[in-house]
Design a protein around this nucleic acid. Structure first.
Length: 328
DNA sequence: CATGTTTCCTGACAGC
DNA sequence: TGCTGTCAGGAAACAT
């Protein structure tokens, strides 16, 4: 399952391989659920754009696209400041803006366009879901089964989105400038302060959240990027039981959890992520953090610290692993 | 708003 | 061998 470290590895790998390339042609599979934006929109936005940069936000891969001014970008949009930079609910707005753009763009193509430096105009968002992969391949390499999108690049290579289980999602959003770039639904685990981290577990009125701490860690609108593996591993290292109420940890426990989470994610990035099922990076290479898992996938096995049998339960609908002795 | 439940989808694996 | 059934799980939609 691609979580923050895996997505970071893939995004960096893809960035190194395709930055600066122009997208010549786009193919999509027609499997509706894979596309959050309409496929036609994705094709229109991506075709002819230049890949400025590929990065990770939460669990989402963000491909920043540049275009030449005077063609696709001409004509002012009227957002009226509706789109705010706080992450949620912006994609629908962007789609609406995009449709306007396209109509204007067509009229303009006939006039002939002014050559100007490329500028940021849109982003291509790729969420890998559970089994999604983003691969950079030679065009001659046979496309894997369950390929749902192919971007043909100027140098002939292809970026391919492959997703057997189809929990992944592709979308595009139009932006005015880099500052309006996709911010994700929550806070970044790698950079959040300890104080802000504690604040996640209080509701709007400052009350203590009653959900299980594990469920809260998985809530992407609080903290984005943490998934099932790293939630379990962080809780194990912090010595906190997954079912504890999120708002009722001690200050020391929040401190340990905050530190453990960063530690676990950072270490996992160093090792190229965890390959528990079929995760591979942009080169098809597996990660190695699974070798350092303390609890995830180890139900019934002895705890590496105290030897007690690791238990597997369900919390927030997710398989959850913990040591009943080390975690209180 | 906070929280819980259901749904999507198919490969892997258990059981017969 | 080959079939059927069950399960996993991120995030959005829906329900409470």
């Amino acid at each position: 399952m691609p979580e923050l470290p895996e997505v970071e590895t893939v995004a960096n790998g893809v960035d190194a391989r395709v930055r600066g390339q122009r997208i010549e042609e786009v193919w999509t599979s027609g499997k509706a659920q894979t596309f959050k934006s309409a496929e036609s929109e994705i094709g229109e936005v991506l075709t002819g754009a230049r890949i400025e940069r590929v990065r990770r936000v939460g669990k989402t891969i963000v491909m920043t696209l540049g275009r030449r001014q005077g063609v696709e970008d001409a004509g002012g949009r009227d957002d009226g400041g509706k789109r705010r930079a706080n992450g949620m609910g912006r994609e629908a707005d962007s789609s609406a803006a995009l449709r306007n753009d396209d109509q204007e763009g067509k009229a303009q193509g006939e006039n002939g366009s002014v050559v100007a430096p490329t500028r940021v105009s849109a982003e291509f968002l790729v969420h890998l879901g559970m089994t999604g992969r983003l691969l950079v391949s030679a065009a001659e390499a046979p496309a894997p089964a369950h390929t749902h999108a192919v971007l043909r690049l100027g140098d002939g290579r292809e970026v391919r989105f492959v997703d057997p289980r189809r929990f992944g999602r592709l979308s595009v959003r139009v932006i005015e400038a880099v500052e309006d770039g996709y911010a994700g639904p929550g806070m970044e685990p790698l950079t959040i302060s300890e104080e802000a981290f504690r604040g996640l577990f209080r509701d709007k009125k400052g009350g203590r959240r009653t959900v299980a701490i594990k469920a809260a860690l998985l809530n992407q609108s609080l903290l984005h990027g943490v998934g099932n593996i790293y939630a379990d591993e962080a809780l194990a290292r912090a010595g906190v039981r997954p079912r504890r109420q999120a708002g009722r940890l001690t200050r020391a426990e929040y401190g340990r959890l905050h530190a453990a989470l960063k530690e676990v994610l950072t270490r996992a990035i160093e090792l190229g992520g965890s390959s528990v099922s079929d995760y591979v990076d942009a080169d098809g290479v597996r990660g190695f953090f699974q070798l350092e898992h303390r609890v995830y996938g180890r139900g019934g096995e002895p705890c590496r610290v105290c030897g007690t049998e690791i238990r597997k339960i369900v919390v927030g609908g997710r398989g959850t692993h913990f040591c009943p002795r080390c975690q209180r």
